[in-house]
């Protein structure tokens, strides 16, 4: 017996529809409700936000727990005032951004960059320069912490040279007339004279400046004035001394010019001329560029206007003009030559 499939299928379909109205429909309701409720889905940005929040929180905690800032010691002229015997009074006065004058005996100043400590007497003036700490005048006990890795020695600059030190204690006195001395208490220092000579100083030893006269090169006699027809002698050939460092040259130049200025101010013309002639005897490499021309001009100026030594001045200006035909002091030289009437 065959059965009608379409009729049987319709009856089965009716039964399925009944089923769809029952628990099956309720299950579908629940599933759809779960599926359609918007859920917060995980995103990688969530992780980033959490990590960022943790970092900010940690930074906040660290900031809250940071140690209280320590007030830096008062700074004067680039120095820190490490200790003063009488705190109620001002131990020192800043003269400029890089120099200081000590008014109270025993004031301790500290140069943090060089780890140099100075216990200065009243009236001492100190200046921080690129090359080192300059004792302009007065007296100070210098102390430098020993440090093996220091690339360059700490330098204490004085009128008559420079003291190079890597870790030691010494007392320096600098007078207003340019003279002074250093006494080493412990360690070892080198004293560098403007001539380039370096003297090793032993503990207990004292070195004075300016450099003793007998240690300097002897002064040459002034050559006689040549007759007008004779061609003036050529200036000494340039001789480069490579062993002298830039620092040596600058130090020597400063020292000579200071001494010349001092002698000028005191109208010690003969000594001034001798100092300039001695300085000009040194080879070219002994000074920085421009210094030799300046020294030559200074000598000519003293001969022209102060001592009025016409032959010597004329002879000097002839050499000067030949050496520096387009020199920086051309106008002054022309005026001097005209005043001297050298052509006659």
């Amino acid at each position: 017996m065959t059965r009608d499939f379409r009729q049987a299928l319709k009856r089965a379909d009716a039964a399925w529809r009944d089923e769809a109205h029952g628990p099956m429909g309720a299950r579908l309701d629940a599933r759809l409700r779960d599926s359609l409720v918007p859920r917060r889905r995980f995103r990688w940005t969530d992780l980033g936000l959490v990590a960022g929040g943790a970092v900010v929180g940690a930074a906040l905690v660290l900031w809250l727990l940071r140690p209280a800032p320590v007030a830096p010691p008062p700074a004067l002229g680039g120095f820190e005032v490490a200790a003063a015997p009488a705190p109620a009074t001002a131990p020192a006065v800043a003269l400029a951004s890089d120099s200081v004058r000590v008014d109270v005996d025993g004031t301790e100043l500290y140069d943090a960059a060089r780890q140099l400590r100075v216990t200065a007497s009243a009236g001492t003036t100190l200046k921080r320069e690129a090359q080192g700490v300059r004792l302009v005048n007065g007296q100070g006990v210098f102390q430098v912490a020993k440090q093996a890795q220091r690339p360059e020695p700490v330098r204490v600059l004085v009128e008559g040279g420079a003291i190079e030190v890597r870790g030691t204690r010494f007392t320096v006195t600098q007078g207003a007339d340019g003279a002074g001395h250093v006494t080493l208490e412990e360690g070892a220092i080198d004293f560098r004279f403007p001539s380039g000579r370096v003297k090793a100083v032993a503990p207990g030893e004292t070195v004075h400046w300016p450099e003793e006269a007998e240690e300097l090169a002897p002064l040459p006699d002034l050559p006689p004035a040549p007759p007008p027809t004779v061609e003036p002698p050529r200036p000494p050939p340039a001789r480069r001394v490579d062993t002298w460092s830039d620092f040596d040259r600058r130090l020597r130049s400063e020292a000579v010019l200071r001494r010349v200025m001092t002698l000028r101010q005191q109208s010690r013309w003969d000594e001034c001329i001798a100092e300039l002639e001695r300085a000009l005897e040194l080879p070219d490499g002994a000074y920085g560029p421009g210094t030799r021309e300046r020294l030559s001009w200074e000598l000519g100026s003293v001969l022209t206007w102060q001592t009025k030594d016409v032959p010597a001045a004329c002879w000097h200006w002839t050499i000067h003009l030949k050496t520096y035909p387009r020199g920086r002091y051309g106008l002054e030289v022309t005026r001097a030559v005209a005043a001297l009437e050298c052509a006659k």
Binding site: A12, D13, R17, E19, A20, M24, G25, L28, R31
Partner: peptide, 21 residues
């Protein structure tokens, strides 16, 4: 349309309720 869709799904799945759902 819930009942109708379920009914259609049941017939296309030959009466298998899990698949039809």
């Amino acid at each position: 349309f819930r009942a109708r869709v379920l009914g259609w799904a049941l017939r296309f799945c030959a009466g298998r309720a899990d698949l039809a759902e």
